[in-house]
Amino acid sequence: MHIMEGFLPPVHAAVWGLASLPFLVMGARSVARVTREHPRAKLLLASAGAFAFVLSALKIPSVTGSCSHPTGTGLGAILFGPAVMAVLGAIVLLFQALLLAHGGLTTLGANIFSMAIAGPWVAYGVFRLARTLGGPLALGVFLAAALGNLATYLVTSVQLALAFPDPVSGFLGAVTKFGSVFALTQIPLAIIEGLLTVLVVNLLIQFSRDDLDELAFAPGVVR
């Protein structure tokens, strides 16, 4: 999902940067509120960032014969709400842009929008919906993380298609083209991300019930 440095025209880069800005401000305020109101959960917040750090470093082979990586942003979104992930995801993306030439500074706004905003908000929405409809917690966690992951890559495809519409088939043709690079490859990775997020939530319920209660996460679920 990383759009490489310089690979979005300046106007697109600027617009995505501006679009991400309010979410970053909201995220920073949300992080400040979490650390003020739930000091006990500070270490869990850092761990949610760490989860995104490790998952987005893992390039995993897919059935399409190419490699891609999970994002790890769903976990923090369902624990703390989607806003904080704008900040935590931006840190991950900045690390990769500066030290790995993976993504870039000019494309940082667009990459933040897909990985640190769209993914977490979709994950959060799916999780809330799944909880409202009932059903097991693990299913909601799995769907949230997996669909958040797919949403990130879908947004990247749209961003690229807007910047580089196909000369013949236009914007929609380009969405299909970039989508075919990402989407199929991403499906097994989204499943992996879903399973790993369920695993971490299981461990949290087992060992860290107090932190989850502090955040009013899945009240009443005990192992």
Partner: peptide, 26 residues
């Protein structure tokens, strides 16, 4: 097992041979 990110980059350059990245990593 090439990276999907790099494949997207290749797709851009293939469809838009005139596009010049206007910024390079520091």
């Amino acid at each position: 097992f090439a990276g999907a990110d790099a494949q997207a980059q290749t797709a851009i350059t293939a469809a838009n041979p005139d596009y010049q990245p206007w910024f390079t990593p520091l």
